[in-house]
Amino acid sequence: MERNPFVINFGKVPSQYISRELIIDEIVQEMTDEDSQNTCFMLTGTRGSGKTVTMTAIEKKISMSEDWIVIRLNAERNMLESLVGKLYDSREFVTKFVDANLNLSKFGIGLNLKTKSPVADIESALEIMLKEVRKKKKKVLVTVDEVSNTAYMKEFASSFQILIREELPIFLLMAGLYENISNLKNAKNLTFLYRTPQYEMEPLNLTLIAAKYSKVFGIDREKAMDMALITKGYPFAYQALGKYIWEEKNHELTESVLIKFDEALSYYVYKKMWSELSEKDKWFMSFIVKKDVMPVSELLELTKQKKNEFSQYRERLRNKGLIDVSGRGIIKLTLPRFDVFVKNELRYFFPEDNYDKTR
């Protein structure tokens, strides 16, 4: 039996992946340019928007060159110590240099050189190692997925600024949810992040999705476009719908497929998003989902709220990736069948009430 080409595992690059070539090429070009003006880059978007897969594609392109050392770090661990340890393990010339010149025994790294005093400061050790990397005409790319405003992340970002001022060959690529990136940027002494290029994971091109569906399922473009429209260009939805249509007899879009599709969206993405909303966020969303596109004036009339009262929630919901407010005076739902999810959630919590009475 032919293997399903669509996957819904987060972070895994599927065979029917639609690459964000423009973003990938722009970042890689900037990093590899002799006169690069930027050393730090951010990828932001909602869960399932393709941040991790895009980051992985950039890592692979960069690592194809022998001039680069690519290191992944976890924002929940001591990032400076992890970077020094992984840098030590990354290339033979770094390992030999450390073993001959640095006593990093305090951090459990390398040989215990009795002729050298143990290095007390991990940041100093990193600077020395990066100077050696520079001598060898190499560069280091550090990638951090699921960035959040942790103490380790703030410490690392502060140290990164110092390393850049020293003109050391280190680049940083981060990926995270809108709100987590925003919280990090607003942290004390990290205002440099406001000058960092930020790439939002916009919806995938529906024509490309339709072309993929048409080719994989052997169907005409019109039917494929009908499928693509259901996904709204949301990468996780593109994979999920493709997966369940592939499993269906004759690769048809059936009611059974839509049920599985809704369940996948709910289980893997929407329930987590919903749990992170405040009660007032949820209250506003319960009105917004009444229409795929709603004028702000209509929402204010329905909720009996003033424009300034809604403004902060408008911004919060936009940053959560739930609504598109780019159109003047218009609110659009960004996620596929999120209205179905919200209405089901409200019915679950208010089973005996009419939906409108939950207002």
Rank of each mutant, 00 (worst) to 15 (best):
M1R: 10
P5D: 07
F6Y: 11
G11T: 03
Y17D: 07
I18W: 09
E21I: 03
L22M: 06
E26A: 10
I27F: 07
E30Y: 04
E34C: 00
Q37A: 14
N38W: 09
F41E: 02
L43T: 02
T44E: 12
G45V: 03
T46C: 08
S49W: 04
T52N: 08
V53W: 07
I71R: 08
N74V: 01
M79R: 01
E81N: 09
V98Y: 06
N101I: 01
L102T: 04
N103K: 09
S105E: 13
G108H: 07
G108V: 01
I109N: 06
T115N: 14
K116N: 05
K116H: 11
V119W: 05
V119S: 07
I122G: 03
E127K: 12
L141I: 01
T143Y: 04
S148T: 10
A151K: 14
M153N: 05
S159E: 10
S159G: 12
Q161A: 12
I162R: 15
I162Q: 11
L163N: 07
E167Q: 15
I170W: 06
G176A: 05
L177A: 04
L177F: 09
N180S: 15
I181L: 09
R195L: 02
K215E: 15
F217K: 11
G218H: 07
E222W: 04
M225N: 12
T231H: 11
Y234C: 00
Q239N: 12
A240K: 09
K243V: 00
I245D: 12
I245T: 10
H251M: 09
E252L: 13
E255I: 04
S256E: 15
K260Y: 15
L265H: 03
Y268H: 14
K272C: 00
K272H: 14
S275E: 13
L277I: 00
K280S: 00
K282G: 02
I288H: 02
K290W: 09
K291I: 00
D292M: 11
V293K: 14
M294D: 03
V296M: 05
L299Q: 03
T303M: 07
K304I: 08
K306V: 02
F310W: 11
Y313T: 01
L317Q: 02
G321S: 09
D324V: 01
S326Y: 06
I330G: 05
K332E: 08
K332D: 00
P336E: 05
P336R: 07
V342N: 01
F350L: 01
P351R: 08
E352Q: 14
N354T: 12
Y355S: 00
